[in-house]
């Protein structure tokens, strides 16, 4: 196995953080943009860039409610996103296991 088998949409530090954070929410829950920014520690611009990529892959959805100062953008992980993260974790675990075995004498 090689690292190439890891989903490239998720396999960056920022997007991995975003996906893992959103995956801790229950189905149906969403998190505000500022809340997600607070937890991940990303700047607004960087967060927007990565969310766009995840949204293009249909791993997250973003919804904007209200307008002006009361506007609230909320982000949620999709079922496809959860499945992709689960698959990513499985491949990652296999990679780590195989690396561990190859290091054994």
């Amino acid at each position: 196995m090689s690292d190439d088998e890891l989903n490239p949409v998720i396999h960056t530090p920022a997007r991995l953080r975003i996906m893992v954070t959103l995956a801790t929410l229950r189905d149906g829950d969403d998190l505000s943009f500022t809340g997600l920014q607070d937890v991940t520690g990303l700047t607004p611009g960087n967060l927007i860039t990565h969310l766009r990529k995840l949204e293009d892959a249909e791993y997250v959805t973003t919804n904007k409610n209200g307008s002006g100062v009361t506007a609230r953008t909320s982000i949620a992980i999709t079922h496809d996103g959860r499945a992709a993260l689960k698959e990513y974790s499985t491949v990652l675990r296999q990679l780590l296991d195989s690396a561990g075995q190859s290091q054994q004498p």
Binding site: D3, T12, G41, L96
Partner: peptide
């Protein structure tokens, strides 16, 4: 962390630690 890291790479151990 706040840099746009789309071009950065991680090895599996780093990814596991981040998760």
């Amino acid at each position: 962390r706040d840099r746009n890291d789309q071009d950065l790479t991680m090895d599996p151990a780093d990814a596991a630690a981040i998760m």
